[in-house]
Write a protein that binds this DNA or RNA. Structure first.
Lengths: 221, 221
DNA sequence: TAGATTGTTAATCGATTAACAATC
DNA sequence: TAGATTGTTAATCGATTAACAATC
């Protein structure tokens, strides 16, 4: 009797983070292709546009299943659906935003989130002047209500946009409230339980990557 | 006669980008240590706090010189100076910001840039209502003045915070004006001349990295 | 069919880690 | 000195690329 063919559902820990990060890029590119009226694409086209080899594109996708059609390529809409399912963005995610300063306000107003399935449903700040006000249609709550609201509103993801010194204690509250994952915009490395996924975004750091290249290019040439 | 010992100035292309990206993290951590009154640290301490091995910390730094003291470790202020020099942030950089929407305004107000040596000296938008106004002390100029102003104001770096469909043409103008590097916040892959360093920051993409982990953790456990 | 393109294996390449002599 | 920690080499590990049979 043949063994039951096991579902190709790889241990997510076995998938390199670099692969997942490229998956998002493939998704963006496919969305652009669809917008341009393209029905299908190929690993070499995707690779060319993003600066990868065709082999890498195929290998990355092969981690998760067979999405292509030999001789044809990939159907854009099919692959978009597949990648969204892999990334978990085939549904809406309820997001809580902590810190309504300059950056927080921008995140609240940023249209790019909704397009990809993210909805900021609650905002928090400890400035009494801001609490109770409506920013982009979302009411600002006090930080004291953070844990409580996470549960009531069924918030699954948190974004931290508070000043660096406050970021860790906000993270602690989010974790205690059972948040699933955190995107942290404060320039500190957070210590969170291994149960909670954390990604850090440091805007100045991105600029530093550029200055390294620019400085050394000028010096070297 | 002994050969002139060549300056340890490695081909910047030979330094993996991952190393440079960690350099920024070391810098942040060292700044926190200084703020806490610490004078010295060690590769194992830095590694522990950031989640790397001690060997990796030493190897990364060894790409650029000998900054440590055997038996002692690293002097925080010394290493901060060394890393800033490597990253090129031992001086101020003049930055131009294109796109004064939600995100652009936040970038203008973000304090984290100045702390690391970045100064936004010009802002651009093609909305006539915004042109001429003052945002965070910076006058908003028309996009038509972009190329001209880059040169007059000696702007070396550009940040793009316009909607995705306009990002490429903004990048083209920046490149034509001789910009050194670009940080792009629009969710598109820009095509720029190889002479210009480009880094992309896609906020939704960061969230997708989190949802991947959260989705699959829940599914798997 | 001929041409195109996938999924996958094996080979290559590069990055991380472990270990240790040199140093303070 | 003994203990601590670096810088560096060699060994390991993992990721990328090249190549090609299978497929449409």
């Amino acid at each position: 009797m043949p063994e039951q063919k096991p579902e190709t559902r790889p241990d997510p820990n076995a998938v390199p983070v670099a692969v997942v990060s490229r998956l998002s890029l493939y998704l963006r590119e496919l969305q652009h292709l669809i917008a341009d009226g393209k029905e299908t694409t190929s690993s070499s086209q995707l690779g060319r546009q993003l600066g990868f080899t065709d082999a890498q594109v195929r290998k990355d996708l092969a981690h998760f299943g067979h999405f292509g059609h030999p001789g044809i390529g990939y159907r854009c809409d099919e692959l978009i659906g597949a990648i969204r399912k892999i990334l978990g963005t085939d549904r809406q995610w309820r997001v809580g935003l902590v810190g309504i300063g300059n950056l927080g306000r921008a995140l609240l107003g940023y249209r790019g989130f909704e397009q990809q399935g993210f909805r900021i449903v609650a905002a928090f700040d400890n400035d009494p002047v801001k609490v109770g006000t409506l920013v982009d249609g979302v009411e600002v709550c006090s930080l004291e209500q953070l844990g409580e609201t996470i549960n009531q509103q069924q918030i699954e993801l948190g974004m931290i946009a508070v000043p660096a010194p406050q970021a860790q204690q906000v993270a602690d509250v989010l974790v205690a409230a059972g948040i699933g994952g955190i995107v942290n915009f404060a320039p500190v490395t957070l210590r969170v339980s291994g149960q909670v996924c954390q990604v850090g975004v440091d805007l100045a750091r991105e600029l530093e990557q550029v200055t390294f290249v620019v400085s050394n290019r000028i010096a070297g040439s």
